[in-house]
Write a protein that binds this DNA or RNA. Structure first.
Ligand code: FES
Ligand code: FES
Lengths: 180, 180
DNA sequence: TGAACGCAGACTAATACAGTCGGCGTTTGC
DNA sequence: GCAAACGCCGACTGTATTAGTCTGCGTTCA
């Protein structure tokens, strides 16, 4: 896990909108437009969340994504690992074994176990991962919504419903540009 | 601070050899050969440590580097920041302000303060930095040497002394290959 | 004076990240 | 049955970063 990427920011922001949405799948395109980010890019992120068992996908028209488990059992660490893959914070090149006083072959004691320096990095990585694991979509979502006026969540839900029904029930409202 | 790089591994490994070396500057070239890494590359790392006040440089022939302060007051965090510059673990793109229900201008409450998601990332970064700050060259160097046989530190010091005097007092012993 | 130093900057190759595009299989509404 | 709205996959582009090299300059010391 090196450098938490923009994909994670997009992903978590999307997932927060899915909290509490148990029976209406939302498409990645709608989530993208809701947040003003690239639909193509978001479309690359969600399959990873699906493979990790964080969201469930339903295919076909009016398909989309739902959370696969309750929001209080989805941690930030789950999402980060799902999107970025488990890349280490630090990858050791084993320089300790190349010390010139060893000659060609380093003695066993020099390369046994984990290098003391590497150990510190692993400890730092663990501290970071523990922090991420301690935060769930539910807890952060609650904190996220506390700043917004009470009507905001309804506004967003309404926007999503408009989006879906606007396309599927009437053929109109192309929602792209090209108004004429 | 994103992804702790190879430069940091090289840098800290070098600095550990400087612990306890108070009056004999060691050149970056010697440190490079001692550890079997690229001299040119190491030569790019040390000026950063010097600018950060971690090592002191002495120029001219038989010059080199010394620790600028006691090893128990040089933390891993100091070294990482000196070498990599303070790059954030996560850089927020402020997607929260682009929500479609806001229209063109996001309301003040939406962009005030730190995004709840961003806050978690900052917290995780702080946990990592705190861990790095808690470890010093002295503590890790001690742990590092505990694995080695007692004669090892002397062997290394001898190797360095040979390196210096071999070049400067006699012109011989090129220490490269080309033995004949 | 020249070799051994530190220091700065230009340069390269490889990799990763953000973002796009086109094609394919599935489902639904008409 | 067809087309549109979905998810999913792989190939592709441009830019930034990383590891590593090379050249040149100023300083010190034998
Ligand atoms: S050998 Fe990789 S950190 Fe020490
Ligand atoms: S806007 Fe960047 S993390 Fe929420």
């Amino acid at each position: 896990m090196a450098h938490i990427t923009t994909s994670v920011e997009y992903g978590i922001h999307c997932l927060l909108w899915l909290v509490g949405n148990d029976n209406r799948p939302v498409s990645s395109r709608d989530l993208a437009e809701l947040q003003g980010v690239s639909p193509s890019f978001l479309a690359k992120i969600f399959p990873r969340l699906e493979k990790a068992g964080i969201v469930k996908a339903s295919e076909g028209v009016r398909g989309g994504y739902l959370l696969a488990r309750p929001a209080d059992r989805i941690s930030f660490l789950d999402v980060v690992d799902a999107i970025e893959g488990e890349k280490p914070l630090f990858d050791c090149q084993e320089v300790r074994g190349r010390c010139a006083v060893f000659g060609a072959q380093a003695p066993g004691w020099a390369t046994a176990g984990t290098c003391a320096i590497h150990a510190v990095m692993l400890q730092a990585e663990k501290a970071m991962r523990d922090t991420l694991a301690s935060q769930t979509l539910a807890s952060v979502g609650e904190r996220f919504m506390r700043k917004a006026p009470p009507a905001f969540a309804d506004d967003v839900n309404g926007w999503i419903s408009d989006r879906v029904s606007g396309r599927a029930t009437r053929g109109g409202r192309p929602a792209r540009d090209v108004p004429d």
